[in-house]
Design a protein around this nucleic acid. Structure first.
Length: 276
DNA sequence: CTTGTGTCCTGTAGGC
DNA sequence: TGCCTACAGGACACAA
């Protein structure tokens, strides 16, 4: 699924395209793609609302509607958003927002893990607790050594696990955590609390650096093409990945083989020489 | 509170 | 071709 750079790229694409568009109708092809409220109420309440702003918090997209409600979309592992013309219905389309200009916003989600929600502001944190508890994003200027060191102190969990924790590093996922750890020269399995202050500092710089580079590259589209921009264009950061997806291939820095291990059921890639 | 594990759901790639 | 397994960018519930 998209991480911060992918979701932000999607937001930047959609923002001018959807601003002031009216949702004329909603076609719900899978009821379980609606997280809240019921699909019938979702459809009814989204109809005729105008989109006036699109923002992002971590990996959540937030569409502010004129009806004093927020349309929240989370793409999870395989969700996509596409702008489509009236006669185009993409495969795995779960929800279709028909707009007032003969185009549609298509929510595509093969695995049906990603969800859409329609909420009042006051309901946001209750229905989606992850939004309320969200930590700082690495591109936030308050995300500094002090912040991360405080989160890591006395923690035995692997540093990689804590990088994936949205309460700590909002927007970071499996790809950029590995890339940042490589850039910082830190082993993913290190207990987070064992990092010296200088290492935490390197990690803060690395996270910021990697995420900004990925943003400039419009995100990472792996060979499976699961992440695409709303017009179908691919991201470009896959060509700059240093460790992710490179098991047994030579490290670009030292030439030793990249290792893949499993950390909390997720693939993790690292260089056994460059990372300590 | 912390940590590790399993689960949600479906599709695809690769081995045999 | 068919069958089987492993894997997939996330988040959360649950048990210890």
């Amino acid at each position: 699924m998209p991480e911060l750079p992918e979701v932000e790229t999607i937001r930047r694409y959609l923002s001018p395209v959807l601003r002031n568009r009216i949702i004329k109708n909603v076609v719900i092809r899978r009821n379980d793609a609606v997280g809240f409220p019921s699909s019938a109420r979702f459809r009814q309440e989204a109809r005729n609302a105008r989109i006036y702003q699109i923002s992002r918090k971590g990996k959540y997209l937030l569409f502010s509607l004129t009806s004093h409600k927020v349309l929240v979309i989370h793409l999870r592992l395989s969700g996509q958003l596409r702008i489509t013309q009236a006669d185009q219905v993409p495969k795995y389309e779960r929800i279709r927002f028909i707009l007032d200009n003969d185009s549609a916003l298509s929510f595509i989600e093969p695995r049906v893990l990603g969800k859409v929600y329609l909420l009042k502001d006051s309901e946001l944190s209750k229905i989606i607790p992850g939004l309320a508890q969200m930590g700082l994003e690495p591109i936030d200027h308050r995300f500094n050594t002090q912040y991360l060191a405080e989160k890591f102190i006395h923690r035995q969990a692997k540093v990689k696990t804590l990088l994936l924790d949205q309460k700590i590093c909002a927007g970071v996922g499996n790809i950029y955590s590995d890339e940042a750890l490589f850039y910082a020269g830190i082993m993913p399995i290190r207990p987070a609390g064992s990092l010296r202050r200088n290492e935490v500092k390197r990690l803060v710089i690395a996270l910021r650096h990697i995420i900004n580079k990925a943003l400039r590259a419009m995100g990472t589209t792996m060979t499976d093409g699961r992440y695409l921009q709303p017009d179908g264009a691919r991201g470009m950061f896959q060509y700059q990945l240093m460790v992710v997806g490179r098991e047994s291939l030579p490290c670009y820095k030292c030439g030793k083989k990249i290792i893949r291990i499993t950390i909390s059921n997720r693939s993790s890639y690292y260089c056994p020489v460059c990372q300590h």
